[in-house]
Write a protein that binds this DNA or RNA. Sequence first.
DNA 1: CTGAAAGCGCTTACAG
DNA 2: CTGAAAGCGCTTACAG
Lengths: 338, 338
Amino acid sequence: MRKTPTVKDVAVEAGVSVGTVSRVIAGEEAVRPVYREKVNAAIAKLGYRPNVTARALRTSKTDVIGLVVPDITNPFFAQLAASVERAALEAGHMVMLASSHEDLEAEQSHILAFLDRSVRGIIVVASNGNSHLEINAPVPIISLDRRFGSYPLVSTDHAQAASLVVDHLYELGHRRIAYIAGPPETEAGRMRQKGFVTRVQQLSEAGETIELEIVTGRFDYESGERAARALLAREPGDRPTAIAAASDQQAIGALRAARDFKVDVPDQLSVTGFDDITLAKLVVPRLTTVRQPTDRLAARAVERLLDQKSPDEDEMVEGSLIVRRSTGPVPGRGSSLA
Amino acid sequence: MRKTPTVKDVAVEAGVSVGTVSRVIAGEEAVRPVYREKVNAAIAKLGYRPNVTARALRTSKTDVIGLVVPDITNPFFAQLAASVERAALEAGHMVMLASSHEDLEAEQSHILAFLDRSVRGIIVVASNGNSHLEINAPVPIISLDRRFGSYPLVSTDHAQAASLVVDHLYELGHRRIAYIAGPPETEAGRMRQKGFVTRVQQLSEAGETIELEIVTGRFDYESGERAARALLAREPGDRPTAIAAASDQQAIGALRAARDFKVDVPDQLSVTGFDDITLAKLVVPRLTTVRQPTDRLAARAVERLLDQKSPDEDEMVEGSLIVRRSTGPVPGRGSSLA
DNA sequence: CTGAAAGCGCTTACAG
DNA sequence: CTGAAAGCGCTTACAG
């Protein structure tokens, strides 16, 4: 617990001025080698570490990035947070984390708190509901996955990714599909649904008609379970042959409902998710889903944040279909399809 | 993006000195009401917010708590992190998060990085492997859930909690139990196992003998699945009637193995976990487990951190048994047991 | 009760 | 190439 050494201590130890110490730390070329060595020796001897707070105050530049997510307990956001932390670390930055719990006020107050701490920039995965707050921020703000205000968004190309699922299901012969949509207040929810519906229409026009029904919910397990229950409670002949969900959590909820109804997946019902959370490959059966490239998303978000002349444009990265065991050929049609 | 106002701007706007501005912000009583009002008006008009960095430099006190967890993607740690964030917020603090990925070097460098940023204190959920690093830290450090170095630990009373599981299983008639232990390098792993074994011995001495076999693994899904597979691959007569796991993740892996082996849970096999992660009540069947009171753990950790004269003692909080659907009476004994 | 001034630990023009 | 000095935005003894 003894006092932490400062530049001054290093300076007297090395017999130079504080300016010189500061310069060798900054790695400036223009320092006499003898001094450089003396300073480095002094630093080592004293165990000196620069005070980042003081440096921040002087330069008004910090190396911490603020990250606000709706809920760190949600496995997808946890993965995203882990990716952001990794990307930040690679860029020599730390991350300060805050959860908004889908509360607009909390979200705003966290952002202001970050600003008070002069973070380098803020990445926000917006909470549901339109946050119309425009903040006069002296640092860059970027939206990740879910748009915040009117700040540029880095996200998966939800529409394209959703269309991948449609193609997959279509190829397996499914013509009666139910889509469990995400909340329409979220851009992700809307985009995924739109991409899904659009692709269904395209295929319907080009080939066999697809019957599509949509039920809307939240992104969580319970929503998925509830929606699937409603679908599966009907006469077997009235059920869809495939349920596509807007999130893995919904899909896992649907899996649970199927088990309760003794509907075998994938023999009697195909189920797909979206996100590819860790859990997706651990449930039974392993879930066919769309992978959101969290590492890439995070890397782009921090790069954009750190890049001065970053444009204001949105940026989309492609998702990819991960086929596992929860999808299979449509039941009861056999090879007559081919 | 215009310049942020400072105390000085407020001072000229209010027609007072910066000292006075600072005093009203600090809430000092001894300020003439007229001035106080003028200052508040100026603050409001300018939208002034104190620069926390400058304040920190001056007072050498910050309001950010460093938290390092092994892996934010692990649902239990995510819950713990959420609880810490909540507790910190209530105490007017923010949290800076870092993941060690079970890497001792990363863990250490994160702690040093926090120190460089003059955090108020550091909460560390240690990574596996003995970190013998003694840090000469100018701020308090406390271990949460898993001990770091020799810093005081706040954790669930693992041994007591584990004994709850034994009692539950015993009451259900189980006399052949397998215990999937956690890594012996972790205190939690050791304590849970010890508590489990001790309680089994006590019961064996007092009543019917319990056959206990122990298989050791890591805390993750795969470990649990692998261990359970080995157990279930045997002749039905040679299998344990209950598998108790040292973590929910292991237990969920075991559930998966049981399904693969067509062993019904709980009719043919009881399975228990430990932690009560969100997922525990979402798997099929819902998992009987021990709840770790993350909110309470986190609250204690931050209180201890913020409390100057906090003792160096470890602190344990009690876990509680949550009985759900993955445990049932031992099969094949019927009521002959009673 | 309030102002002027020092100082937290740095960085960086400015001289020399 | 290097030192002396100013200043980042605050807080807080010290006078008055």
